[in-house]
């Protein structure tokens, strides 16, 4: 047995909580080791001192203060339960209901205002006018569609003929994987 093992078993030895084998080991260690004997007696004395510490009792006013605190707590609970017993409308307390309806009215008012300002804005009016004009042009184009389609085809032909064609057969070489 070494010092660490001895210290680990010390409390169990003092409280008689050891097996016979361990107790014999400790006693053998104590016989051979004066330092261990001193430690054991020192711990026993410490324990005696701590066990004999004067017990601290509650003051005479303890109960009075406690029941005063308890009374306060009860009163607070009663007032809070009274406070929570309120009539509700559709599950809302009057205050919450009023707040919610105010929010709804505000939302409707703001959205109405927003729509009306968008419609009365001159820039938006211009955009609307442009859109109308485009629609009108589309309608006109549809009316003379056959002539317009042929004109478009012609123009595409002229564009194609104007384009230069490059012959890259001899100029471009591809690198083969094998090379």
């Amino acid at each position: 047995m070494n010092k660490i093992e001895f210290e680990d078993l010390l409390s169990k030895y003092i409280e008689n909580d050891l097996s016979l084998a361990d107790r014999k080991k400790i006693e053998a260690y104590l016989n051979d080791n004066k330092e261990a004997r001193n430690l054991l007696s020192s711990i026993k004395k410490t324990l005696r001192l701590v066990n004999n510490l004067e017990s601290i009792n509650a003051s005479k006013a303890f109960n009075q203060v406690l029941f005063h605190k308890l009374k306060k707590l009860k009163n607070r609970n009663i007032s809070s339960t009274n406070h929570t017993k309120k009539t509700t409308y559709f599950g809302f307390t009057p205050r919450n209901g009023a707040f919610l309806s105010l929010l709804i009215v505000l939302f409707i008012g703001v959205s109405f205002n927003l729509v009306s300002t968008v419609l009365s804005d001159p820039i938006n009016q211009n955009v609307v006018a442009k859109e109308n004009l485009n629609n009108l042009n589309d309608n006109k184009l549809n009316d003379g569609s056959s002539s317009l389609v042929s004109a478009v085809k012609d123009s595409s032909k002229t564009k194609k003929s104007n384009r230069k064609t490059f012959d890259l057969k001899d100029k471009v070489q591809f690198v083969k994987d094998g090379d």
Partner: peptide, 20 residues
């Protein structure tokens, strides 16, 4: 628990050894 009590007692004894 047992090991903590053991350690605590040894530490207490070290603190109080001058008064024993």
């Amino acid at each position: 628990v047992k090991s903590r009590i053991n350690r605590a007692r040894i530490q207490l004894q070290e603190e109080l050894k001058n008064f024993l």
